[in-house]
């Protein structure tokens, strides 16, 4: 019986990327993937090639080297996403071929990927408060990229009501004990009028490569008239009259710590202030101190439970703990 002439078998294939590329990826990210070609008949396509067309039109050719469960794959390849955020399109082409009686159809697929700018966040710290009106001071502004990009050399700003009032450049080393918070010391000048200032530390992301989102951190500080007067405080223990050193004192929002003689000088503007004294085991309060010139006052602090005493009292019925 005569054999029928051989018939060309045009096997259809599907092509793609493993693992599947997420719908959204970070700009400039490195993705490790394999390109695959799957023949419906499970044909082994090792030695054939696949072309990868990057969003900028660059074409790279990759050989299919492995065959598992009816699918032929390339070695792992590293693909870099564009630095610019936005939708980018990748092309994948299998040119097809004919080998003896078997042919494989060509196939092409386009893959849209949403390339995201890197998230950033800002911290502002070491902000003095209160600050006398019109006084120069500095704040620290730090920026962290969510993917830990080194942001050294990028600009940060301090803005007041949208107006830039200070600029700095992020330094080479991250702030101590942080993973990647690059920071700058930014000189600024306090507003000319008293009140609570609402400013913000800003990272614009401009010129950052790959693209980074802008971010900001609002911060506040108190602006006061210049401290024209001096409150000379002496803090004593009420029961003994002994000086109380190392006590925190607050005259309104102005703070100081008493010396060994129980004394502290606190410069303040004219006004009426509550004086509060606090230290472990003692507390004192002098309400309504009117300051219209230099003034000396003594605050007698009374005994209060120490931290250790309060803690011991609370834990009294509970377990004494392993160290």
């Amino acid at each position: 019986m005569a054999a029928s002439p051989p018939r060309s078998l045009g096997h259809a294939v599907t092509i793609g990327v493993r693992p599947a590329v997420p719908a959204a990826v970070d700009a400039g990210a490195a993705l490790t993937v394999r390109l695959f070609v799957a023949c419906r008949s499970g044909c082994d396509l090792r030695g054939r090639i696949v072309r990868l067309v990057a969003p900028d039109g660059a074409v790279t050719v990759h050989e299919l080297t492995g065959h598992v469960d009816g699918t032929t794959v390339t070695d792992e390849i590293c693909v870099h996403t564009p630095h610019a955020a936005g939708v980018s399109t990748w092309g994948l082409v299998f040119p097809g071929h004919a080998a003896g009686r078997v042919t494989h159809d060509a196939a092409a697929v386009a893959m849209d990927v949403d390339v995201r700018p890197h998230d950033t966040s800002v911290v502002v710290w070491d902000v003095p408060s209160p600050v006398p009106v019109g006084t120069p001071f500095t704040v620290k502004v730090g920026v962290r990229c969510a993917t830990l990009c080194r942001l050294t050399g990028h600009a940060v700003e301090v803005r007041a009501d949208g107006v830039t009032v200070g600029r700095g450049t992020l330094g080479a080393l991250p702030w101590p004990d942080t993973r990647g918070l690059h920071w700058a010391e930014v000189p600024v000048v306090a507003p000319a009028t008293p009140g609570l200032a609402h400013w913000a530390g800003i990272f614009t992301g401009v010129n950052a490569t790959p693209d980074h989102r802008a971010s900001q951190a609002p911060f506040t500080f108190r602006v006061e008239p210049p401290p024209a007067h001096r409150v000379a405080l002496t803090v004593t223990v009420r029961d003994t009259g002994a000086p109380l050193g190392g006590a925190d004192v607050r005259v309104g929002v102005y703070r100081a710590v008493t010396d060994a003689a129980g004394q502290a000088d606190v410069p303040v503007p004219a006004g009426s202030y509550d004086v509060v004294v606090e230290t472990d085991g003692f507390a004192g309060h002098l309400p309504g101190l009117d300051v219209h010139g230099d003034v000396s006052v003594t605050v007698a602090a009374v005994r209060t439970p120490t931290e250790a005493e309060e803690h011991e009292a609370l834990e009294r019925y509970e377990a004494s703990q392993w160290g």
């Binding site: 902000v127 609570l196 911060f219 108190r222 607050r250």
Partner: peptide, 29 residues
Amino acid sequence: VARYNSFVDLGRDEDFDKPTPRYKIDTPP
């Protein structure tokens, strides 16, 4: 945190009356 820090500047907690909030939460980490 930004709002709480503003209470430290003001010397009063306008939301929950914490007695004279004293310390900003601003220094990393």
